[in-house]
């Protein structure tokens, strides 16, 4: 008597009752093992996803900040991440400095770029129609790509920061990923404190809410615009460094594009004007991007990866149906 029983590749071929029950219990223990493995995988993926989400979240905070304060969508967002990646790469391979040092360097470079672009281009576009600022930021992105290509070439580069790994029972985590995550949380926290407890931070928040009201209170709104843009760009470039701590290969001038799209999804998810919302949305996005993989992989005949990507967009779609202003938006 041949029985086909589910539980991996196990096929029972035999015909006595004792061996049947023995075999069935083996099937069940296989099943349990399989389920345990899936749960382990899921937990492992969720951890990695959370870590990545921190970096995603930080990367998107700059986008939301800029939009919240000056109402400009930075279409060149991903390219600034690329700048950060190259800062980390160059400092590591040329100067031999650890990426941790690249973080403040990236902030300074990012803010300098931000001020530069603001005073040359963006300042005039604050009251211009949206399309103009979209085109301007798009052009900024292309400019950065081409300059990067000129300086660094179109190759894919990477670096190896040997800081070891942590081996947990469910998964192995390279320390660099952990550092990237801690860095993201630290920076986000710092930003939160800075925004709530300092004069300038409060001024930025007031301009985000009502620039005319801020103006009559005595806030120098034009300066806040420039500063916010610079901080936004600075954050984005910094996140490029953290990203390379997470994924230290594939650094090339054209790597930005894919991240812009993800950032947009995350920003809208978090409520376009709230940097904190963006951070949390980033965490959630990372969790789902990785966690969904395991769940999709359970469905036979389905390729998990493409589904995971489209999942993000479905999430966004449904969220916007329910709460059009995003998770934390107004």
């Amino acid at each position: 008597m041949k029985i086909f029983v589910r539980g991996g590749d196990f096929i029972y071929k035999g015909n006595t009752q004792e061996t049947l029950s023995e075999s069935l219990s083996e099937v069940f223990s296989n099943r349990v093992k399989e389920e345990k493995m899936i749960l382990t995988l899921l937990a492992g993926n969720l951890i990695h996803g959370l870590l990545l989400g921190g970096v995603y979240g930080l990367a998107t905070m700059g986008l939301s900040l800029i939009f919240g304060v000056i109402n400009v969508v930075n279409v060149g967002h991903g390219q600034f991440i690329m700048v950060g990646a190259f800062v980390a790469l160059t400092m590591f391979t040329v100067l031999g400095l650890s990426p941790v040092i690249a973080i403040p360097a990236a902030l300074i470079i990012g803010m300098a770029l931000g001020f530069f672009f603001f005073y040359t281009v963006m300042r005039r576009l604050i009251r211009a129609p949206e399309l103009t600022s979209l085109l301007a930021t798009f052009a900024m992105g292309i400019l950065l790509e081409e300059i990067a290509k000129l300086i660094f070439g179109a190759d894919f580069r990477g670096y190896y920061w040997a800081v070891g790994k942590i081996t947990l029972p469910i998964t192995t985590i390279p320390m660099s990923k952990l550092y990237a995550f801690i860095g993201s949380i630290a920076i986000a926290l710092f930003l939160y404190l800075w925004f709530s407890k300092t004069r300038i931070g409060t001024a930025i928040r007031s301009v985000m809410e009502d620039s005319e009201g801020a103006r009559v209170c005595g806030v120098n709104v034009s300066w806040i615009h420039a500063l916010s843009f610079a901080i936004g760009i600075g954050l984005t470039v910094m996140s490029g460094v953290l990203l390379t701590m997470f994924i230290p290969v594939g650094i090339n001038p054209y790597m930005g594009g894919g991240y812009t799209l993800k950032a947009f999804v995350i920003a809208v998810l978090g409520g376009l004007t709230s940097p904190y919302g963006a951070f949390f949305a980033g965490l959630i996005f990372g969790l789902i991007e990785n966690g969904a993989y395991t769940l999709f992989a359970l469905i036979p005949g389905v390729a998990p990866f493409p589904l995971t990507v489209s999942l993000a967009f479905w999430m966004l779609f449904f969220l916007l149906l329910v709460k059009p202003t995003g998770l934390l938006g107004k």
């Binding site: 493995m37 995988l41 994924i247 594939g250 894919g258 993989y293 395991t294 990866f305």
Partner: peptide, 19 residues
């Protein structure tokens, strides 16, 4: 398993493979 072109993170797939 296959993975899409331009993938930036293979961790879930490789974790699965490791198991």
């Amino acid at each position: 398993r296959t993975y899409p072109k331009g993938v930036t993170d293979l961790t879930p797939l490789l974790s699965d493979m490791k198991a």
